[in-house]
């Protein structure tokens, strides 16, 4: 009995969780200028508008550049941290790992503001995409570490030793044994970091300077009611892209778990 009520609650909860997102395509294909019910009829004109919008394209390009570079750098740093914490036990490990993971809970405005101050006031440099990348690497690294730690921790340290024992150099052992075993984790963390960076607004808003990223561009659109349907269309595509990327990430993460012969019951975090 109580279990049925619990299930009902969970279903309701999940429905509410997804409800706002479900509205996206509804308004994206709505022929009306105003984002409100009743609907005005089916139209794909808002999507068509996306194809010809040059500002949008350059913002998208900026975001892709930022997301690719940040995710690669964050994952490289994440591999170092995840391997160090899984493989070695050393003094100060907890404190250092804590410092690397702090951006996970730090309010993003603090990250944005503090990097802004360093770039603008201390270094006296112009803002730009490079500053966004620098900050995105900082906030993506903890997520990369979280995903990669699972992969590295489930790796039997004897694996690499066995490879060494069978005649491989340290690099050879890492390349032929460790890397293939954690590869799915690496792909998963790349995709997750890419998604985070692509969506990130709060920090990018402070640091992007004259060349906006996609979320900063969308923020600009939100001020003009006439542009809102475009935001809906764009949002639909973004949500779709996120879901595809994350599904791929989840598939890779699970494949990694299966490959390492580990029982799988966890999520990304």
């Amino acid at each position: 009995m109580s279990r049925r009520w619990l299930l009902l609650y969970v279903v309701l909860y999940m429905a509410l969780l997804y409800a706002p997102i479900a509205l996206l395509p509804i308004f994206a294909f709505n022929d009306g200028q105003v984002i409100a019910f009743p609907l005005q009829g089916f139209s794909t004109r808002w999507f068509e508008g996306l194809w010809t919008n040059r500002t949008l394209h350059s913002a998208l390009w900026n975001s892709l550049v930022v997301a690719v570079i940040s995710s690669v750098l964050a994952v490289v740093l994440g591999i170092c941290a995840a391997r160090a914490s899984a493989r070695y036990a050393f003094r100060g490990q907890g404190a250092v790992m804590g410092m690397i993971m702090v951006p996970l809970v730090l309010p993003e405005i603090i990250v944005g503001v503090s990097v802004l101050i360093v770039v603008n006031t201390v270094l006296g440099l112009p803002l730009g995409l490079w500053a966004v990348i620098a900050a995105h690497v900082l906030i993506c690294t903890p997520f990369a570490v979280a995903v990669l730690s699972g992969a590295f921790q489930s790796l039997d340290p004897a694996m690499e030793e066995a490879a060494r024992d069978l005649g491989e150099t340290p690099w050879g052992a890492f390349r032929t044994v460790t890397l293939p075993l954690v590869a799915p984790g690496i792909v998963a963390s790349l995709l997750i970091c890419f998604t985070i960076s692509l969506d990130e607004f709060i920090i990018a808003f402070f640091l992007t300077g004259a060349s906006p990223t996609l979320p900063v561009y969308i923020w600009g659109l939100l001020r003009f009611p006439a542009d809102l349907p475009i935001v809906m269309a764009l949002g639909t595509l973004l949500v779709l892209a996120s879901i595809v990327l994350l599904t791929m990430a989840e598939i890779f993460r699970r494949r990694g778990a299966a490959r390492a012969g580990r029982k799988d019951s966890g999520g990304f975090l």
Binding site: M14, L17, Y18, P20, I21, L24, I192, T195, I196, D199, E200, F201, P215, I218, W219, L222, V231, L234, G235, L238, V239, S242, I243, L246, G267, F268, L269
Partner: peptide, 12 residues
């Protein structure tokens, strides 16, 4: 459960 969390914050 996590999917909605990763989709564009601004849009949400």
């Amino acid at each position: 459960i996590t999917i909605p969390f990763w989709t564009s914050y601004l849009v949400r």
